[in-house]
Amino acid sequence: MDSLVDFSQPTIYFAVAAIIFNPTFWNTAARAEYHNKTLTKLAGGNALYGCYGLAITIFALGLIRDALYERALRQQPSNDLLLSFVSQGLAAVLVASGNILVLSSMWALGITGTYLGDYFGILMDDMVTGFPFNVTDAPMYYGSAMSFLGTALWYGKPAGILLTALVFVVYKIALTFEDPFTAEIYAKREREQKGLPKKQI
Rank of each mutant, 00 (worst) to 15 (best):
A30I: 01
L123I: 07
V102M: 12
G121N: 05
P158V: 04
G113V: 02
Q75E: 14
G113N: 06
G121L: 01
I122E: 03
M127A: 13
K188F: 12
C51E: 08
M146N: 04
Y34P: 10
E190H: 15
M124V: 11
W107M: 13
T114Q: 04
S84N: 05
G53C: 03
F168Y: 14
A60E: 03
E184M: 11
T38R: 06
I64F: 05
M146E: 01
G143D: 05
G143L: 06
Y49W: 15
Y142F: 12
T11P: 05
T112F: 11
T176D: 08
Q9A: 15
T151H: 05
P180E: 10
L68M: 09
L162Y: 11
A55G: 07
G50Y: 04
I111T: 07
I161E: 03
W26R: 13
T114S: 10
A159C: 10
M124D: 06
I19D: 01
L116C: 06
A187R: 02
L4Q: 05
K194D: 15
P139Y: 13
Y49C: 11
N27A: 12
Y141P: 06
F59E: 00
D6C: 09
A18Q: 08
L103A: 14
A96T: 13
R65M: 10
L83E: 02
A43R: 00
D80T: 13
W26I: 04
F25W: 07
I58K: 11
T164A: 06
I201K: 12
P132I: 00
Y142I: 14
D137C: 13
G195A: 02
I185D: 00
K198V: 12
L166H: 03
A55I: 04
M124Q: 14
N46Y: 03
S104T: 12
Q9M: 14
L68A: 03
G121Y: 01
G195I: 00
F177L: 11
Y186S: 04
S3R: 10
G45F: 10
T57E: 14
G62F: 01
I12N: 00
G45I: 08
I111K: 12
Q76S: 03
N22V: 13
V86I: 15
F14R: 06
D2T: 07
H35M: 10
A145G: 01
L103Q: 10
A43Y: 07
G121E: 00
N46Q: 09
M1Q: 15
W107L: 12
A165G: 06
L83P: 00
Y49R: 13
D179H: 08
A96Y: 02
K41F: 08
T40C: 02
T114N: 10
I56D: 05
P180D: 12
K172V: 07
L196H: 08
G53M: 04
